[in-house]
Design a protein around this nucleic acid. Structure first.
Lengths: 256, 256
DNA sequence: CGCAATTTTGACGTAGTTCAACACGTGTGG
DNA sequence: CCACACGTGTTGAACTACGTCAAAATTGCG
């Protein structure tokens, strides 16, 4: 959390446009018929870096630096990813972690904590990332004053409900690992397309280990499948860049 | 949709208490400091039967009778299950259906349609079921008048977001079919406990075929696993009744 | 009772796991 | 500079769990 202002400038390239962000409904000034009212400065902090690169240099206390929020902690703020990627996970009893999702730019983190006022997972930055932070208590206070803001919050939650539903639908009940991976690749590409301007190319900052963990398959299986997909001209991997070559074939695979 | 009033009386036993229902936030009169205001009659229709038993007598046109809402159709209302069970599914290209979830009493159906004003799945009653119907347009109109109602709608969506998140977390990334089934059984029991007064016993109106479809495993595998679980004294199945014998062991299994 | 639908059981093949080895890049210390 | 450990990704071979196909058993309904 150090060197904030500097970092922002250095990595300003990959930030999502505010218009494409799920938080947008509550980040814009409210404009009624004649007048405009900007309450956002009361609850919004824009583009806060959540630096994970820094962590690797000092191998002590790696986690605290990069952790955005922690499971079971009381809800203080909800976040929108500005840049980078976050992984959401919970701890298994045996000490291992179970990854339950990823969040890309424009997507929300922590909004499901509103119901019970506590977070339901850990969120950690993968690589250099940043978020916009909305203090929920302050947002609520403003909502009492401005009904339009409440209406916007409803829109935000409705969109989020839709997104969650969609993301789950794509992954539930896939029998073969092929269809599971195909569905996953299509899903992240679809989500990527909403903030990046490329619909087929994405930077895979997520490690194979994490993807395998999320999908519930082994690293080795994932590696073999990716090779197979590449041989079959479905995808192309160069370094960290992943390109979808045949969306149709992947789609066909994914519905098995 | 016929014989409504009669059916309601006949099956009135298994209805959920309104206090335990996810829709509750928008089904109660709004009480401010001194006065009480009941807008619900403007948008709410209570306990509408969605009869599926009747369909089996006339073997033509089985589906239309029991369908609550259809994929891609414009949003007209959101529903809360009063009694029975609903299955949510989408159609695969090959004509088969893919089950993406079940809804038990007190749970919502169709709320994720608010974002795009259209439903994202088909919902069909399993057995004799009933719902409360909230006309979304009328609810919205009332929301313009009563800010408290908007606040309640926020609560409702927040809870739903939490529920979706929880249900997914439990099922994502399970490698073995054992852990998947264990997680599923615990999940439906947990949800059951919220409306039934028994935490360990539930009536399995859902067919094995549908459960297997949802989990992405074969009927045969499911059947074998259920036998295995029963032999291992984890569960006990008598007819349609399922009883959880060892929650702890299932929990241990589910996190594999 | 008798038929149909659903569920369970059996035998065999395949997909994915497991365990082990190896390749590659990176950071660390001599 | 090289040697070494370490994290990450890929590949091979044996094992196991799940899918597949077929048949038997059970349940439900007229």
């Amino acid at each position: 959390m150090t060197k904030m202002s500097i970092k922002v400038e250095q990595t300003a390239k990959n930030f999502i446009d505010c218009e494409r962000c799920a938080m947008q409904a509550v980040c814009q000034p409210i404009t009624t018929d004649e007048q405009s009212l900007d309450l956002t400065e009361n609850y919004l902090t824009r583009r806060v870096p959540v630096n994970s690169e820094q962590a690797s240099t000092s191998h002590i206390a790696k986690i605290p630096d990069t952790m955005l929020l922690q499971n079971h902690q009381p809800l203080t703020a909800i976040y929108a990813v500005c840049s980078g990627v976050f992984k959401l996970y919970i701890d298994n009893e045996d000490g291992s972690e179970k990854i339950i999702g990823f969040r890309f730019p424009g997507e929300l983190i922590g909004e499901d904590a509103i119901y019970q006022n506590k977070y339901n997972y850990n969120a950690i930055a993968i690589g250099e990332s940043s978020v916009c932070e909305v203090s929920f208590a302050k947002l609520n206070a403003c909502g009492q004053l401005a009904p339009e803001l409440q209406q916007n919050l409803i829109q935000l939650l409705a969109k989020q409900s839709f997104n969650q539903q969609r993301n789950n639908q794509t992954l539930i009940g896939k029998k073969s690992a092929d269809s599971l991976l195909a569905a996953f690749l299509l899903n992240i590409c679809q989500r990527n397309a909403e903030y990046s301007y490329s619909e087929t190319q994405i930077e895979l900052t997520i490690s194979r280990t994490d993807i395998a963990n999320f999908l519930g398959i082994r690293r080795e299986t994932l590696s073999r499948l990716l090779s197979k997909f590449q041989q079959a001209q479905l995808i192309c991997i160069k370094g960290k860049m992943l390109e979808i070559l045949s969306q149709e074939k992947l789609l066909k695979l994914s519905s098995c």
